[in-house]
Simulated assay, not measured.
Amino acid sequence: MSDHNNPLFNQSLEKGLAVLRGFGAARRTMNLADIAQVAGISKSSAQRMIHTLEELGYVRKHPQSRRFQLTPKVMEIGYNYLAADILVDVANPYLAELNQITGETVNLTEPDGLDMVYVARFVAPKFIPVHMPIGSRIPMYCSGAGRAYLSVLGDDEIHAMLESSDRVTFTQYTQTDISSIFKRIQNSRAQGYATNQEEMFLGDMTIAAPVINSHGLPVASVHLAVPCSRWTLPDAEQKLASSVIQCARSISNSIRTL
């Protein structure tokens, strides 16, 4: 939670970041009024923010529509995070090996708030129903990666995070009841991996295992994304789960020596 009353807190920076975060798949371009509304700031403040961001090269204005959009320079910030993230460097060889062994799409996600964020991805050569580029976010409560991460936390912390989640229904299979999700997480803790079957995307299921640091805390999750057209969940668990667990353990052991 941000402490806006702290004299060190820079509200102008907060507004500028709010403008950048306002752009996305649902709002690829925006006019000044859109920007003010999405960022929760006045129109005059939005004008100052967007002008500064345009001067710095992070946004540009279309010459005909006069609407603003992000530029590729924004990706520099995310790339710098990935380049500085030792976990990604350590994990990549193990993720690539799991991709080769299984022939399926392998992902590494890290926690941010109540979400897991994709930081590495090795795509299967075969058909996959869902495209999740680096930087994509998935909620913890209904994803295999999220449940794997949560399974390493204490019960009180798990409940607090589930209660804070919006628990949106994405498909008819999405689990939104806290007690039901908690039981799934407990099962994940016992078996060493978590699953998700079409709770976020129809035709897609995942098997995930947590990456744990030297303090016994979860820092990421490895997960395989497999299509329902090629796998049933029992078959995927039987044939793939042990490889996912081994990959996550290898990454965990490697980061403990850093």
Rank of each mutant, 00 (worst) to 15 (best):
residue 240 L to Y: 04
residue 65 S to F: 03
residue 116 M to D: 04
residue 165 S to N: 04
residue 85 D to W: 00
residue 16 G to P: 01
residue 122 F to T: 08
residue 86 I to K: 06
residue 137 R to V: 07
residue 165 S to A: 15
residue 168 V to W: 08
residue 179 S to E: 13
residue 108 L to P: 00
residue 220 A to S: 08
residue 185 I to L: 07
residue 123 V to N: 05
residue 6 N to Y: 10
residue 198 E to D: 06
residue 107 N to W: 06
residue 155 D to A: 10
residue 79 Y to A: 11
residue 189 R to S: 14
residue 22 G to S: 12
residue 13 L to D: 07
residue 30 M to H: 05
residue 59 V to Q: 00
residue 256 R to F: 00
residue 114 L to I: 12
residue 187 N to R: 07
residue 178 I to Y: 03
residue 67 R to G: 01
residue 7 P to S: 09
residue 103 G to I: 14
residue 3 D to A: 14
residue 247 C to H: 03
residue 181 I to L: 08
residue 94 Y to P: 02
residue 208 A to E: 02
residue 186 Q to T: 12
residue 162 L to M: 07
residue 124 A to W: 04
residue 50 I to P: 01
residue 228 C to Y: 04
residue 15 K to D: 13
residue 178 I to K: 07
residue 221 S to L: 02
residue 68 F to N: 01
residue 197 Q to N: 11
residue 185 I to Q: 00
residue 113 G to N: 01
residue 100 Q to F: 14
residue 23 F to S: 05
residue 16 G to Q: 02
residue 232 T to F: 03
residue 149 Y to K: 10
residue 12 S to W: 06
residue 162 L to I: 06
residue 143 S to D: 12
residue 244 V to C: 14
residue 17 L to S: 08
residue 223 H to W: 03
residue 197 Q to V: 13
residue 50 I to F: 00
residue 55 E to S: 14
residue 31 N to G: 15
residue 28 R to V: 10
residue 84 A to T: 10
residue 229 S to A: 13
residue 31 N to L: 05
residue 201 F to H: 11
residue 235 D to P: 00
residue 60 R to E: 14
residue 125 P to V: 10
residue 208 A to M: 09
residue 69 Q to N: 10
residue 242 S to R: 05
residue 33 A to H: 08
residue 69 Q to A: 13
residue 109 T to L: 10
residue 168 V to A: 12
residue 56 L to T: 03
residue 175 Q to I: 09
residue 234 P to K: 05
residue 84 A to G: 13
residue 109 T to C: 11
residue 18 A to Y: 01
residue 155 D to L: 06
residue 21 R to L: 15
residue 236 A to F: 02
residue 87 L to P: 00
residue 199 E to K: 03
residue 95 L to N: 05
residue 100 Q to S: 15
residue 95 L to G: 01
residue 189 R to F: 12
residue 251 I to N: 00
residue 154 G to N: 09
residue 78 G to E: 13
residue 42 S to I: 01
residue 180 S to M: 12
residue 119 V to P: 00
residue 239 K to H: 14
residue 138 I to V: 15
residue 164 S to Q: 13
residue 22 G to L: 03
residue 206 T to M: 03
residue 31 N to A: 11
residue 100 Q to E: 15
residue 130 V to C: 08
